[in-house]
Write a protein that binds this DNA or RNA. Structure first.
Lengths: 180, 180
DNA sequence: ATTTAATTTCTGTAATAACAGAAACAAAGG
DNA sequence: CCTTTGTTTCTGTTATTACAGAAATTAAAT
């Protein structure tokens, strides 16, 4: 596939972004490419378009599929796999945050809970330290349960809430007087 | 400083987390250590506690200071720098998201805007592709402006909003009927 | 069954990032 | 000013990760 200069810039930057957030550059680039592409692409096409090794494409695609961001399609009379990416931006965001939560935040929560329990019987640990551990744990729990609520809402509602912004804050402080 | 088993586990895990989100392991560990510590620590103490090279400590502390997560303190009759970390969990979260936004999201937004402009005159690019680029841009803009609003609110209000969760969603859909 | 096409796994190399230790630098105290 | 103490910068090494290319595997078609 021929990349226009703009697409090239876009894809390169997206790869850069990936590395800054702990995502493999090639994986991010392929994701950007498939997102921008308007037709399914074969692994070989991706390889030629991005100039990366075939194996690299294969592994990256597997990774993207495990995230649920890319799916395989087959075309009549063609044995090759054709790959398509999720096309809806909000859906992509939802999938990434959800997967990231599952892979990183949830395990962290588990460890923090273990630590909280162990801290109770750990005689060497100071009370103030224990309290701080508890605060972090509670923070994450509030944040994640809030996230769980919001992710159920349709994007249009979330957009509304975002646009209400600080007005919502005023509302909440009002209610807050007699605690929610 | 002597690390209790629990603290050790905590700090090691925090370092692990860091690497998964693009943060240097030592930086993350030192941050965890200083957060848990109830007294300011010198670079040498940190070095001995975590078993890392002095230079590594120095650079990591510089990094943490540039993030605004760690500050220097001086004690009477002691020439050495003593380091303390922000102790408030919400404040830490706020600082990290804000800094991360400034360093990664804002530059990305700039690039995406450039791409959107270039895409208009890029004859090779398909209309559908251009639209998708626009959608990503708009998504990020809504998200970030929403974030800008919420970050002004006191944590207590944000907690209330988070706990209201899906109830808030129902509210927003109601308002939505005649658009906000 | 055998050939051909497609994909994955494996292995070695290259690039990157993390790090230790040494050297250089800065600053305070005598 | 010169010594001591503390901090930073520099240099080389190590470890990790990313990657290319080859080999192996799988599966469809003749």
């Amino acid at each position: 596939m021929k990349l226009s200069p703009t697409m090239q810039k876009y894809i390169v930057h997206w790869g850069e972004m990936g590395t800054r957030w702990g995502v493999n550059r090639t994986v991010a680039q392929i994701h950007a490419l498939l997102f921008l592409a308007n037709n399914p692409m074969t692994a070989d096409e991706i390889m030629e378009t991005l100039n990366v090794a075939r194996s690299n494409v294969s592994n990256s695609l597997k990774e993207l599929q495990s995230w649920g961001l890319v799916k395989v399609q087959h075309e009549l009379g063609d044995r090759r796999d054709h790959f398509v990416a999720l096309q809806d931006v909000w859906e992509i965001f939802r999938v990434i945050t959800e997967e990231r939560k599952k892979r990183e935040l949830d395990p962290t929560l588990t460890v923090l809970r273990e630590c909280a329990i162990e801290a109770e019987t750990d005689t060497e640990i100071e009370a103030a330290t224990r309290e701080k551990m508890d605060q972090v744990l509670e923070f994450l729990e509030v944040l994640l349960s809030g996230y769980d609520d919001f992710k159920k809402l349709p994007p249009s509602t979330v957009i509304k809430l975002l646009k209400m912004g600080s007005k919502l804050g005023q509302l909440a402080s009002l209610f807050g007087k007699e605690d929610v």
